[in-house]
């Protein structure tokens, strides 16, 4: 890579990350931590399945086949069939698309709502910061599931509404994360240097500070993906989630509970799909967090010192 020697911003740029390719970093990470390996492979599997979609299955997603109602796992139907003879595996594959779509959308939304709030609060300071902080504390007192239930019930379930309902209670986490990140980074030399060079606050925030607080944000995003899908599935189970034509694992389990005794596979397999999804993102998130900053693990007890 060629860097012109006269380029000031290159001279004052923050220390670059160790020159290792992303792919090699990922492999190294997976090798050093078994959680990352297992979780990462599971994650890739889920994403691949969602991308390929239910089209790979020879069975139709929605068409009932009354000849094969409520059959247990077999060669033709690996995970059995439901009440009206639909293939459970095909429907689980379709469910993975909804799960990823809803959870990814919700987390991205929470990030894009929360991060600017935290950044503005910490950068401006004073009463703006105090106001943002109080509002975030207030939202955090709400049980995320209950809040999502109320919002969805009021506005009716749709993918976008689910994004908002699930994201709402996650917004404070990003606002606080970015706020504390900006507060610590603001005093660093490289920010002073950038300011001395006359960069605008927005540019400093986006180009200088943001890359340096990406690590904890990445951890939070991974863990929140797991949280988002567990909220989505709970909403669906409670009958407040997406309705047909969407297929959600939570709805599949809800439909299966009347047949628990005669056809347990109807509830067991979607539940396993769900648990695997949450497991994958939790494992990767935990492994990432331990790698980024081992001291983060004790951050809970740090609360005590501040109070």
């Amino acid at each position: 890579m060629e860097i012109p020697a006269t380029n000031d911003s290159a001279l004052f740029a923050p220390p670059a990350a160790p020159s290792m390719s992303v792919a090699r970093m990922v492999i190294e990470f997976a090798r050093s931590d078994r959680r990352a390996l297992v979780g990462g492979l599971l994650m890739i599997l889920y994403i691949l399945i969602a991308l390929i979609g239910p089209g790979i299955s020879p069975h139709d997603l929605n068409a009932p086949d009354l000849n094969v109602r409520m059959q247990g796992p077999s060669g033709a139907h690996w995970l059995g069939t439901d009440r009206i003879g639909r293939d459970v595996l095909t429907r689980i594959i379709a469910g993975s698309q909804v799960s990823l779509q809803v959870s990814a959308g919700a987390v991205i939304l929470a990030l894009f709502l929360g991060a600017p709030l935290g950044a503005i609060g910490s950068y401006v300071g004073g009463s703006v910061d105090a106001l943002v902080q109080r509002v975030m504390e207030g939202i955090m007192a709400f049980p995320s599931l209950v809040l999502a239930m109320a919002l969805v019930a009021l506005a009716g379930p749709s993918v976008v509404m689910l994004w908002f309902a699930i994201a709402f209670s996650a917004v404070p986490r990003y606002a606080r994360l970015v706020r504390s990140g900006v507060l610590t980074q603001k005093e660093r030399e490289y920010v002073d240097a950038a300011r001395a060079m006359g960069q605008t606050p927005l540019r400093i925030l986006l180009r200088q500070i943001l890359p340096n607080i990406m690590a904890p944000i990445a951890v939070q995003v991974t863990l929140d993906l797991a949280r988002a899908i567990s909220v989505e599935s709970a909403l669906s189970y409670l009958g407040l989630g997406l309705s047909v034509p969407y297929i959600s694992w939570g709805t599949m389990i809800r439909d299966a509970q009347d047949f628990l005794e005669v056809a347990p596979w109807l509830a067991v397999f979607p539940g396993m799909a769900l648990a695997g999804f949450i497991l994958a993102f939790t494992l990767v998130g935990d492994a990432l967090r331990d790698r980024m900053d081992p001291r983060l693990r004790t951050s809970l007890s740090r609360r005590m010192v501040q109070s």
Binding site: A234, G250, I253, Q257, L260, A267, G271, L274, A275, I278
Partner: peptide, 12 residues
């Protein structure tokens, strides 16, 4: 405990 959805655990 963290991965298994509560409603599923309850049903089981």
């Amino acid at each position: 405990g963290i991965s298994v959805p509560t409603f599923w655990l309850a049903l089981v």
